[in-house]
Each structure stands twice: as C-alpha cells, then as structure tokens.
C-alpha cells in the first residue's frame, strides 16, 4: 500500500514548480518529498540523486532484521564532508530509522546496520554536507514472511550485555579503518503485545557515540526501526591515534561502554 500523500506545503509546491520549469527531467519527485520528515532535511535545496547509495535486498524473508548498507561516492568540494545521513522507512509506524552524524574523521562514508521493515515499502536515505550540499536516494524492499521461517523463543540476554567491538589496533595516516559493533538489546518498539496481552513498554538504545582521544568521531541516533541487538559498522580515518571509546545509551538512562586503543602512524 502506498503511503498516503500528505498535504502539499506551499514551499514544496514552489520547489516542484521551479524544478519543472528549470529541468523537467531532474529529480523533482523523489519519495523524500512525500515524507515530511525527509523533506525537512532536504529543506530548500535540490538534493543530488547521484552519489548516495542504499544497499538493501530486493526481497527479504525476515522483516525483523533486514541488512542495510549506506555508501557515498558523490562529489564534494575540497574540505567538505558529509555531516549527517538520515534513514527513513516510509511504511513503518514510525518512519525514522536512524540518523548518523559524521565528522571529518568519517573518511570513508560507508555504514551498515540491520533494520526492521514492517511491510513492503520504500526506504529513503538523505544526507547533508558541511557546506550544505544535499543528497537523497531510495530503494524499494519487498518483505515476505517465508513459509519456512518462524521466530524462535524470545530468550534474550540482558539489555546492554555483551558489547562487542571489532576495530583495527593500528592504522596508517589517512587509512580508513573499519569498526564493527554489536550489543544485546531488545529494542522493544512499544508497539508489541507481550504474552499477557499488555503492550510491552518501549525500551530502545537511543544514542550511540564514538570518541577517539576525547574527540567525537561518529554518532548515531537510533529509533524503533533498528533491529534488536543493534549492529553498526562504520569507518574512521583518524589523523592521530588514542583511546577509542564506544558508548551505547538506552532510554532508561543505562549505558554500556567499550574501550580500546587505535595507534596511528
């Protein structure tokens, strides 16, 4: 089912008309214009539809954990870099999936995670750069519940237990290092019924922060559409090494911290 069109704001109407006049073949009608939260990120700019890529399966048999990849090979001016990438699931009860905040240490903008998709729908990514460039892309994913798949028991380890991190111990200057993280957490949406028929209260990790030698290197705001046991893979290109501190913080105020060291040289 397509998402119903929201009332078109004046601003968007003007943008569309402008695009029609200037270049009828341009990117006028991306799905990001039909989702207010996404069009707010784009603002008055015309997002570039080349450069930002979403990697998702065309068909997924398990909507509870769909692997999602983000990458960027667009053109940016010298000293410019992506500052934030926003992910939306247009067909979920709450479309926000996550926001990733990147820094000049972001180097290689390549991020992976796993997301919940309620039904067949379009997934949107919108990115902004430090100098105000915007990029947008979308991808349709078909969700089926395979007849040969069935959920197991909900035997979950405690929330925020077992933080797992894989990070390089040494990087050459300018080398992009891949960091992978995984932590146990139910990411309870607050929309699901428990065994006794009562709605289970919302309980999710909201903030994910990475610092290197005391400086913020990567941050993420996570929403309910991130799968249970959040997985995040990203890259850092540090100019100098130091202690890498990774922190997950959930909406009950609890947090988990993992420390390791990266040596650069």
């Amino acid at each position: 089912m397509p998402t119903p069109l929201p009332a078109i704001t004046r601003r968007r109407l003007i943008i569309s008309i402008g695009l029609l006049v200037i270049s009828p073949l341009a990117l006028a009608d991306g799905p990001w214009l039909r989702l207010e939260a996404a069009s707010n990120i784009v603002g008055d700019t015309q997002p570039n539809t080349a450069g930002l890529h979403l990697d998702l399966p065309h068909v997924s048999e398990d909507g509870s954990a769909v692997p999602l990849g983000l990458s960027f090979d667009g053109t940016l001016g010298e000293d410019d870099y992506l500052t934030d990438i926003h992910l939306f699931a247009t067909g979920n009860p709450n479309p926000e999936i996550a926001v990733f905040h990147l820094t000049p240490m972001g180097g290689l903008p390549e991020i992976s995670t796993r997301v919940r998709l309620n039904e067949t729908q379009e997934v949107i990514a919108v990115a902004r750069s430090h100098r105000g460039e915007t990029f947008a892309t979308s991808r349709e994913v078909r969700i089926t519940v395979s007849g040969c798949l069935m959920r197991g028991n909900d035997d979950q380890p405690a929330a925020l237990s077992y933080p797992r991190v894989s990070a390089p111990s040494h990087l050459a200057p300018g080398e992009a290092g891949e960091i992978r993280t995984l932590i146990n957490h139910p990411m309870e949406t607050g929309l699901r019924e428990g065994p006794n028929g009562n709605t289970l209260p919302r309980h999710i990790i909201e903030h994910f922060r990475v610092t290197l030698a005391g400086e913020t290197a990567f941050e993420a705001e996570l929403h309910r559409s991130i799968s249970a046991n959040p997985y995040l893979r990203f890259h850092l290109t540090p100019t100098q090494g130091g202690e890498l501190v990774i922190e997950w913080q959930d909406d009950s105020g609890e947090s988990a911290i993992h420390r390791t060291a990266i040596d650069v040289g």
């Binding site: 398990d62 509870s64 954990a65 395979s146 040969c148 798949l149 069935m150 959920r151 197991g152 028991n153 380890p157 077992y162 797992r164 995984l182 146990n184 249970a228 046991n229 997985y231």
Partner: peptide, 29 residues
C-alpha cells in the same frame, strides 16, 4: 538470528539430545 521451524527444532533437540547441540546466532557473534 531466526531460522526455519526454530521453536520446533529447539524443543526437539532438547528432548532428544539434551545439550549435545549448541546453536550460536548472529546476535551472539
């Protein structure tokens, strides 16, 4: 993290094989 007929397999394993079979899913590395 999920596989086909998981609940049925898990129950059957426990019944027939006790702790002989250990399964480690995606979220547990």
């Amino acid at each position: 993290d999920n596989f086909s007929k998981q609940g049925l397999f898990t129950a059957g394993w426990e019944q027939l094989y006790g702790d002989r079979i250990e399964w480690v899913g995606l979220s547990n590395d």
